[in-house]
Amino acid sequence: MFGFKTQETTSSPSLSALGIIERSAAQAHATLIAMGWSEIGFGYHGSVHAHPDHPDVVVRFARKADGFGDYAALLRKGFAGSNGPHAPRVHDMHISRCGALMTVGTRLSEPARDVWWLAYAHAVVADHPGSAMDDGVRDRFKVEWPAHEPRIDHASYDGIRERFRATWPGYEAYVAALRSVSPQGLDPNIGNVLMCLDGNPVVNDPLCDDGHGLWRSPLARVMGRIVEGLRRWVGDALGRAPIPA
């Protein structure tokens, strides 16, 4: 588990309680499908699965521990708003010896693309007042929401911004707190804001795919950096060694 303690309680479903034993990168996906956990979404490293007998939760599987593992670690460590309505609930988490990541979380849904708050909710994650937005992000944003300029302070948000803040006064504070503890910038991917059953916008998966190992203990992270440094040094040394005639 790389120093990350699995949370298993009677009120929070765990992988074991769901009967999920196989957790390896090689076989976990096929096993989930065979158990009736159909794939309802996928990303760069893995997939999200749902089961008709467990409608309130999803199992997320990734072949490598990625940015969601970092996000789950930050949520469990706790920061302002991490227990609030705009943070996802991660009930259980496991990282296999081969590095595969599996989590159990509360099921969220895709909001309708024409919902009045969606573009602004994404803009808060992608940008913040007074900063410039990357051109690539701006282009993706315009394709998805052509009616909105992707700048929080743009006049097109007049009314929407104020209405959003009145409806969810803690959302921007949550994103700001997350930004302050994140080891990297937040990912503005269009799938990173979902909706929970009560209609609240939830920042679902805002960290980039390459994980920083925040689920590991500080000592384990230091040791990992030392080992990686030694590997690079040995590799460089071998690369510079004279080639036998």
Rank of each mutant, 00 (worst) to 15 (best):
R221S: 11
G213V: 06
G191Q: 09
N189E: 05
G191L: 04
I190F: 10
V222D: 13
L214K: 13
N189K: 04
L197C: 05
D187M: 02
W215M: 13
P188T: 06
N192D: 09
P218E: 07
L214F: 13
V222H: 09
P201E: 02
L197P: 00
P188A: 06
V222L: 14
V222R: 14
N192Q: 06
D187I: 00
G191A: 08
A220G: 14
N200L: 02
M223D: 15
G191H: 09
C196W: 01
L219Q: 13
V203M: 04
G211H: 08
D209L: 06
D198V: 03
C196Q: 15
D209N: 14
G191M: 06
C208L: 10
L186C: 09
R221L: 13
N204H: 07
L214V: 13
D187F: 00
H212V: 05
P188R: 05
C196P: 00
V222G: 12
V202Y: 01
I190L: 12
V202L: 03
P188N: 09
S217C: 04
G199Q: 07
G199R: 01
I190A: 14
D198I: 01
H212D: 13
G199C: 09
I190W: 04
V202H: 01
V222Y: 07
I190N: 10
N189I: 00
P206W: 08
N192S: 06
C208W: 13
V222S: 14
P218M: 06
M195R: 12
V193Q: 04
V222N: 09
G211Q: 10
D210G: 08
C196I: 09
P188C: 07
P201T: 05
L194A: 07
W215D: 01
V193H: 07
A220P: 02
G211S: 12
V203F: 01
G199I: 01
L214G: 12
D205W: 00
N189Y: 02
M223E: 15
P218Q: 08
P206D: 09
L194H: 04
W215Q: 12
C208Q: 10
N192G: 07
G213Q: 06
M195P: 02
A220I: 11
R216K: 15
P206T: 04
C208N: 11
L197Q: 12
L186P: 06
H212Y: 15
L207S: 13
G211T: 11
V202T: 08
H212N: 12
M223I: 15
W215V: 06
L197R: 09
G213E: 08
N189D: 10
N200H: 10
L194W: 00
P206I: 03
L207I: 11
C208G: 07
D205G: 06
R216A: 15
S217W: 03
L194N: 03
L197Y: 03
L197E: 15
R221E: 13
G213C: 04
I190S: 11
D187Y: 00
L219N: 09
G211M: 02
